[in-house]
């Protein structure tokens, strides 16, 4: 199995191993500890370094790896790119968070907190939306998200106003809801999912 640092290197071309722990990523982070992150991004970088350092001691390495993949931090990242923009070492930190999220899902390690669960559910609903229609149908997205999370009441207060403002049509909403019944990729998007699968395989083989 590849180390987290290796995964980041192949996805972003930069490496957390260059991090010298200055903390600027955390200092400028849109979210950070006070806002639901259990540690600053600077600590994520350190844990990735330590996993690499203990590569030849699999148990210790796995401990470090788990601390990263089960953290709330990687999910609370807003992908605002401020850390990447200002990192003095030129590390793609936001890109690193992407790799961590994807790996956490693949390895079934994503945090189990309610807040993270909602975020992961929204991502999954969004991708399913694309799978079904090739596009992001906002009503269908909200519908699936609510089914996944049970947050039935959230945003329902906005719906009448949105219809009033012409941002949503009642008929469209019904059509969108019906689209939820479809399964498997739509014809217009099949080739993209195939391409993604090919890219994933190639990356794995490398």
């Amino acid at each position: 199995m590849k180390t987290l640092a290796e995964l980041v290197k192949s996805a972003t071309g930069t490496t957390p191993l260059d991090c010298y722990q200055c903390g600027r990523c955390s200092a400028g982070c849109t979210q950070n500890v006070t806002e639901g992150m259990d540690m600053g991004p600077v600590r994520i970088m350190r844990l990735i370094q330590m996993e690499e350092a203990f590569k030849d001691q699999p148990e210790t390495a796995a401990e470090y790896c788990d601390r990263v993949l089960t953290s709330d931090t990687i999910w609370m990242c807003a992908s605002c790119q401020t850390c990447t923009q200002r990192c003095p070492q030129g590390i793609d930190i936001a890109g690193t968070m992407d790799v961590m999220r994807q790996t956490a899902i693949q390895r079934g390690k994503a945090a189990k907190s309610r807040r993270v669960y909602d975020i992961v559910s929204a991502h999954k609903a969004f991708i399913n939306c694309i799978r079904r229609t090739g596009k992001n149908d906002e009503v269908a997205l909200v519908g699936e998200y609510k089914m996944r999370t049970g947050n039935f009441l959230s945003d329902m207060n906005m719906a009448p106003q949105m219809m009033l403002k012409g941002k949503m049509s009642p008929f469209g909403a019904i059509g969108s809801a019906l689209s939820l019944l479809k399964s498997g990729p739509a014809d217009n998007v099949k080739h993209v999912f195939e391409a993604a699968e090919a890219l994933r395989k190639e990356e794995e083989e490398q």
């Binding site: 722990q21 200055c22 903390g23 600027r24 990523c25 955390s26 200092a27 400028g28 982070c29 950070n32 600053g40 600077v42 401020t82 200002r86 003095p88």
Partner: peptide
């Protein structure tokens, strides 16, 4: 122990965005 990410002016004062590493 922190690099400063941003300094935001607040009138004549300045606010430093810092993280304690």
């Amino acid at each position: 122990r922190s690099r400063v990410s941003r300094i935001i002016p607040d009138g004549d004062d300045l606010i430093l965005m810092v993280a304690d590493t």
